[in-house]
């Protein structure tokens, strides 16, 4: 099986879906001539032409709205935000138009659209360029929210997102684009709403997604080596709809849980997961669920402060020790 980068896995997904369905097009800043700010759309302009690979002015609100309008009349747009930080300018169209159109039209007007781009912190990009928005979008009924951690998942989930008849917020990671993984040559898709156990374990479930999956896996190795703790790593993959049955199944086995996410703690993804757990797995808990999140501050520029603000394996290890009563 070929080993490719997350970036190329996304590129393959875009290419294959645009080949498959002539209604699919890509629109955003620098997606065409420049080949993509992060080169995810490399080569697509040459392959599909200006009609289907559309460079826009810096006008997030309206090119997002143009995407929604095109979806209203039956096209299947993929709107690329150079980063999700800039998508705040477009959130009116994502929330007020895309997410609600089907409902407020009484089911008459579906919006098959994908909003995608990198989210979360990279390195020393400071406060306005370093934020994870999963929780913002997952809050909204009518949106689906996907945040893949591996090249395999990125490709399979993006293909499914493009085929979905609902608006999908697809959060990639700038720090993930270069990671490599096996991606089969043959066609495959991954259903939205299915979490995956990335590592089996019996003592604690570590729930994570996107970049924090690698963090959790590293922590799991250390826990095994240093403390003999067997951690199960559960990658949500799709934030909304949330795969509660898989979470509960794992909790029944391990009885303890740590949730790791890059976003801020208040009303974060972990808060929702904890809510599901305390309702659906109450009798299986042997310890309160702990969360490892980004620090509750705007992201600082300084390298060391920034490191302190992000989830890392050591923080996950600490939390796991607490829930397993080793600390």
């Amino acid at each position: 099986m070929p080993t490719i980068t997350y970036r190329d896995a996304l590129n393959q997904a875009l290419r294959e879906e645009m080949e498959r369905d002539p209604d699919v097009f890509l629109m955003g800043e620098e997606v065409g001539v420049y080949q993509g700010a992060y080169k995810v759309s490399r080569g697509l302009l040459e392959r599909f032409g200006e009609r289907r690979v559309v460079d826009t002015p810096i006008a997030e609100l309206s090119f997002a709205g143009i995407g929604v309008g095109a979806a209203m009349v039956g096209l299947r747009p993929i709107i690329e935000f150079m980063t999700w930080n800039f998508a705040l300018l477009a959130i009116d169209q994502v929330v007020n138009s895309a997410a609600k159109m089907l409902y407020m039209s009484g089911g008459q007007i579906p919006i098959p659209i994908v909003f995608r781009g990198p989210g979360g912190a990279a390195l020393q990009l400071a406060a306005q360029h370093s934020q994870a928005f999963e929780a913002w979008y997952a809050h909204v009924p009518g949106l689906k929210v996907v945040a893949p951690a591996t090249p395999y998942d990125a490709k399979g989930l993006l293909k499914t997102a493009i085929r979905d008849d609902n608006p999908v917020v697809f959060l990639e990671g700038e720090m993930l684009y270069n990671i490599k993984g096996e991606v089969p040559e043959e066609e495959y898709t991954i259903p939205l709403g299915e979490a995956e156990v990335k590592r089996e374990g019996s003592d604690v479930t570590v729930i994570c997604h996107s970049k924090t999956v690698a963090v959790a896996l590293k922590a799991a190795q250390q826990l095994e080596a240093d403390f003999g703790i067997s951690a199960e790593i559960l990658d949500l993959r799709t934030i909304r709809p949330l795969d509660v049955p898989t979470i509960v199944r794992s909790l029944r086995k391990t009885n303890r849980c740590v949730i790791v996410e890059e976003g801020w703690p208040f009303c974060g993804i972990g808060a929702q997961v904890v809510d599901e757990i305390q309702r659906e797995a109450f009798d299986h808990l042997d310890a309160p669920v702990l969360r490892v999140t980004g620090a509750d501050v705007p992201m600082p520029y300084n390298k060391y402060l920034e490191r302190a603000a992000k989830p890392d394996p050591a923080k996950v290890v600490e939390a796991v020790k607490k829930v397993t009563y080793l600390d």
């Binding site: 709205g65 143009i66 309008g69 009349v73 009116d92 169209q93 159109m101």
Partner: peptide, 21 residues
């Protein structure tokens, strides 16, 4: 007849999106 939009200015890009299509 495609709405019925209640955020001032919200329908402008939508119509442009139909024009794009």
């Amino acid at each position: 007849f495609l709405g019925g939009h209640a955020i001032v200015g919200g329908s402008l890009p939508l119509a442009a999106g139909a024009g794009f299509a």
